[in-house]
Nucleic acid binder design. Structure first.
Lengths: 131, 131
DNA sequence: GTGGGTGCAAATACTTTGCAACCGA
DNA sequence: TCGGTTGCAAAGTATTTGCACCCAC
């Protein structure tokens, strides 16, 4: 990969992601970053998100629909609401996974793992109960 | 969902998936199933894969690139090779995850979970070592 | 000045959908 | 017959890429 050169757009995207607790899609990033860079293009957003993933500054989370991006690079897992589609962090300990991960070494070097949980988030559950 | 009616195409797709150890994409299913149904369309393959997922007969695995489909519905995890893109099963025990899953209940009903492992598969590792 | 970065638009990859004909119950 | 299913093609969604111009180094 060629040497990275500074870009205000990339810095802004990085800062934006760091400021979010949830996990925006490329399109959400695009929509919000345009308040600062009205002429930025979606292509530039995708290009910079890919670069940031390559340098390890952010993580890409592939799930149903659009990919999501996360500036929290410490190991953690995610919960997806089947109803509203929100994606939340699951900050459970991963030590319990140690034995499973050891098994996986049989297939090669494990550089990362993640668990996806699915269900109904507490907000949607409340709405459902009121209906 | 309306009552399902029998279809030879759907049965064939189901049988095909059951016969595979790996996890084909919709396009791989399409290519192979055409040997039996030369006129089947990609749309029909997608429609039937979705139906089979809805009825719980197969699982959909969303990852980078195209979705993959798996007739093995018992809980297990997957390993993806960063080099060749192959997807393998990880048959490690999931009991170790119990505590983590309990944590996740805070966010809603957990109906399923899966771990994704990434690395280099043994076949690619061998090729790399020879080079 | 040079090479990476940007905006724009076109292209690509994957998946869904509208429709008329078809087929299983 | 009735309503689910099919093949075909067009549309939809998400992401990547070619290109000319711009800017950091």
């Amino acid at each position: 990969m060629a040497a990275l050169k500074y870009s205000r757009q990339r810095e802004s995207i990085k800062n934006y992601l760091c400021s979010r607790e949830d996990h925006p899609t490329a399109d959400m990033v695009y929509t919000d970053i345009r308040r600062e860079f009205p002429n930025i293009s979606l292509g530039t957003v995708y290009r910079n998100l890919s670069l940031l993933v390559e340098t390890g500054e952010i993580r890409k989370i592939t799930m149903d629909g659009a990919d999501r991006f996360d500036a929290k690079t410490t190991p953690h897992h995610h919960f997806t609401c089947r109803k509203c589609g929100c994606v939340l962090d699951v900050m459970a300990p991963v030590e319990n996974l140690a034995e499973t991960v050891d098994e996986a070494w049989e297939y090669g070097d494990v550089e990362g793992c993640r668990i996806e949980f699915y269900g109904i988030c507490s907000r949607c559950k409340k709405i459902l109960n009121e209906a």
